[in-house]
Structures are given as C-alpha cells and as structure tokens.
C-alpha cells in the first residue's frame, strides 16, 4: 500500500485523496477518500498548492476537532498525535481514533503541552487549527516537540483574535510572533474555501 496523499479527479477538479476507512460521509473515488477543500483546511492548503509532507511523518495535530482531518493524516502518516479539549468533538475524535491504529487521541489543552509531554515523541510536522485566542502562543509552547527543520502549519482565524483588525494584519502579527522559534516561509490565504482564514507555513529553527 502506498502511504502518500494522491490526487483524484472529481467533477473536473483535482482533489487530494487517501486510502482508508470512511469516518463521515466523505466521497470515495477509486477506493480513495476524497479530501474536500471546503470541509478540511488541510485539503484547502493542498489544493492551493502548499506542500504538506505527512507521508510516513510523525505529526502533532493541535485542535483535532471531531477527527475528520486527523483521520486523513493518519491514512498516510506514521503517527498522528491528536489533541482536542472541547468534550463533544473529542468524544467523536476518540471514536474516529478507534478506526486508525496510528491515530492517538489526547484529550488535553493545547495551551498546556506538559499535559501530554510524556506521550508525544519528536515530530516532523506540527499542524494547528485551534479556535482560541493566542494562536501564536500555542504554536510556540508546542515548538519543543518539533524536530529541527520540521514543518509547522498554523491556521489563523482572523475573527477569533480580534474582530476589528484587518485579517491580513492579524496573519502578519501571528507570523511575527512565530519568528521566535520558527522561520516563517509564507502566509497562505485559504479563500475561496474558507473566509478570514490563513495558514502560516513555517520551519522549526
């Protein structure tokens, strides 16, 4: 079995897809689960041409939600550590984790990495999609898990930080803060798939 994200054609668009058991009502084409860019920010990133090297990688996923995108990651990654703190999504995340041998659910607060530091190994990729304030701080606090040169993808939702600021200013502000521990490569706006969302793509120093 190949362990990489592939591309399939759906309605004349190319979408990322992986092989694995379905967890929701996702579309399956040629035996592969299609990642829809409107239902998964990671899918939106890939469709926008961003490199997301999760094949055989160790991934720390912060803000795992109900586990849909982590399940895609776990289709191809070596290990996915999925942290979620809201009880209802976390309940579903545990169900999803039961279907994936290398998806490890952690019901914990991503702002307190010491709550899971005895379990999480050094990772190649940090993927973060938390809705709380202080998104940059969360990525900084968890930087200790990321191997040197490892990638970080920090999803920034402009509105959860400050409703009055321009989205671009907010993205820049997060990027500047990340500079303390990461070398920021670019900021990718997730429109048209998600409004007021961007991903800050960086490397661990």
């Amino acid at each position: 079995m190949t362990r990489a994200v592939e591309w399939v054609k759906v309605d004349s668009e190319r979408y990322p897809a992986t092989e694995g058991e379905s967890v929701r009502d996702e579309r399956v084409v040629n035996g592969k689960r299609v990642w829809h860019p409107r239902k998964s920010k990671a899918a939106a990133l890939l469709v926008k041409g961003v490199d997301l090297p999760i094949g055989d990688a160790r991934v720390l996923y912060l803000g795992a939600g109900a586990g849909t995108t982590p399940s895609y990651f776990a289709d191809v990654a070596r290990a996915v550590y999925a942290v979620e703190f809201a009880p209802s999504p976390a309940s579903r995340l545990v169900d999803v984790a039961e279907t994936r041998k290398r998806l490890f659910p952690l019901f914990a607060d991503a702002r307190k990495p010491s709550e899971y530091s005895s379990v999480v190994e050094g990772v190649d990729v940090l993927y973060q999609d938390v809705a709380t304030r202080g998104q940059a701080d969360v990525a900084l606090k968890n930087a200790g898990f990321v191997r040197e040169g490892g990638r970080a993808y920090v999803i920034v939702k402009a509105r959860s930080e400050d409703v009055t600021a321009e989205p671009e200013e907010k993205y820049e502000e997060v990027a500047e803060k990340l500079d303390e521990k990461y070398e920021v490569e670019k900021v990718v706006d997730l429109s048209p798939f998600y409004d007021d969302h961007a991903a800050v793509v960086a490397r661990r120093r």
Binding site: P113, E115, S117, S118, V119, N142, F145
Partner: peptide, 12 residues
C-alpha cells in the same frame, strides 16, 4: 504519566 508536567522535548 500525564501528570508529570514536564516541558516538551524532541524524543524518539
């Protein structure tokens, strides 16, 4: 072990 509260670290 989750209660140890240690700082994050890169470990294999």
């Amino acid at each position: 072990s989750l209660e140890d509260g240690a700082e994050p670290e890169v470990r294999d």
